[in-house]
Computed example of a mutant assay.
Amino acid sequence: MVIGATGQIGRPTVRALAEDGWRVTAASLGGGRDASWPDEVRAVRLDRADDTALAAEIGDGCDLLVDMVAYGTPHARQLTSLADRIGSAVVISSVSVYEDDKGRGFDTQAEPDGFPEYPVPIPESQRTVAPGESTYSTGKAALERELLAAADRLPVTLLRAGAVHGPHCRTPRELYFVKRNLDGRERRVLAYGGASRFHPVSVRNLAELVRLAAARPGSRALNACDPGAPTVLEIATAIDEVMGAAPETVLVDGPAPAPTVGDTPWSVPVPVVCDMTSAARELGYRPVVSYADTLPETIDSITRRLADHGDWREAYPKMSAAYGDLFDYAAEDAWLASR
């Protein structure tokens, strides 16, 4: 059973498991299907918050449960309460659970000197934030702690995903450059000299990690990222190549010169890059795609969605809520003119 099957990670994961010989039940709130799934995949409607409905759908049991949307202690206990009916589980977590040696993490980024300075690359042994329910990071940490504590009853592989990219994403970071190219912007500004690195992960590489973990049950937390961590400038250039665009890039040393100028969704003052050694050693993980491999599909998905909506905020409301005004062209032009 795959919970959250019609989300951006769920779609390729269902396909990968079905093609690997699993008989898959694809559960989602809407009960829909993806066109890429084999006919044998069984799609069901499931409200994840309904404990009784989940237990009924699992029935006498399943060999594997894959959970794309688990979060916090309640979801962890929901799964462990069914441990006697689940052979093993794979659950999506996040690199945001990490904190640095000064106790800084993703939740302290906006504070003065609050951005975490992680080792490069980050191993799974790096300390994590205290579990809680107040933020996404603490909720994921609580989920991890509860599930790993139940290792004797339920083998669980936790996949700490990086910056997820691919079709059907509701917060695609690539939007930042795709829309600028579509709008014919001739210049763009990049903070931190365009050298920021925030480790991405393709939904197809996540699906491959799930597939491998399904065949090798165990209790562990593993980083889940692409084979490389390109810089923001490299990402921008790769998107330009796919779109046939050639804007001028203006690099700024240090942080964004104005609140809405040069601050991309990847812009970080120090690298956030994960060590993928453990996934290779424990699962035999070999990435199936690189970041550049997936860009044509991602760009096409974003372009079509923008065309279907009158405003980018309507197309991607969660992106707007998370990052604010990403396309303040007036502020960009004013700053560029002032140089």
Rank of each mutant, 00 (worst) to 15 (best):
S338A: 15
L54S: 07
A191L: 13
A330L: 07
E241D: 05
G21S: 03
I122A: 07
R188Y: 09
V14C: 02
R185I: 05
R197C: 10
A331W: 14
A150Q: 03
Y291S: 06
D308Q: 15
I3C: 02
S196F: 14
R85G: 13
P123A: 09
D240E: 09
Y136K: 07
V261D: 01
A229R: 10
A238I: 00
V288R: 09
P119Q: 13
I302W: 10
M243N: 04
P74A: 11
D183L: 09
K140M: 14
A70Y: 11
R204L: 11
L147N: 00
V288E: 11
Y192F: 15
G30E: 13
L251W: 15
R185Y: 03
Y329A: 00
A70Q: 10
P287E: 06
S125E: 12
R45L: 04
E297W: 05
T108M: 06
A53Y: 00
A110R: 10
I92M: 15
V156L: 08
A258R: 12
R33S: 09
V91L: 10
G103M: 11
G21T: 02
R170V: 11
V91K: 06
E40M: 02
P121Y: 03
E174Y: 01
N223L: 03
G103T: 12
D47F: 02
A130C: 01
D275G: 02
L295Q: 12
L17C: 05
R48V: 05
V69T: 15
A214F: 11
V268F: 00
L143G: 02
L222R: 11
A151G: 08
D50H: 00
G218P: 04
P112C: 14
S96L: 09
D325A: 06
V201K: 10
S125Q: 11
G166Y: 08
Q109Y: 07
A337K: 09
G139Y: 14
R173Q: 11
G59Q: 13
R281P: 00
Y285Q: 02
G194Q: 15
P287H: 08
R15N: 03
V203G: 02
Y316A: 09
D183S: 04
D67F: 09
P116T: 07
W312S: 05
S202R: 01
T73W: 14
C169K: 08
D325F: 13
A5D: 01
P12M: 04
L206W: 03
S196T: 15
L336P: 12
A214M: 09
G87L: 10
V97K: 04
V156I: 06
V129K: 04
M319Q: 12
I299M: 13
A149T: 03
H75E: 12
C62Q: 07
L212K: 11
G162K: 08
S134Q: 13
D63R: 12
G61I: 03
A5V: 05
I235Y: 02
D47C: 01
G105K: 04
P259F: 06
R145D: 01
T128F: 05
P271K: 07
V2I: 13
Y176C: 09
K140T: 07
P116D: 06
G10Q: 01
R305D: 11
L182P: 11
F115T: 01
G114W: 12
A215M: 04
P131T: 03
Y136C: 08
Y323E: 09
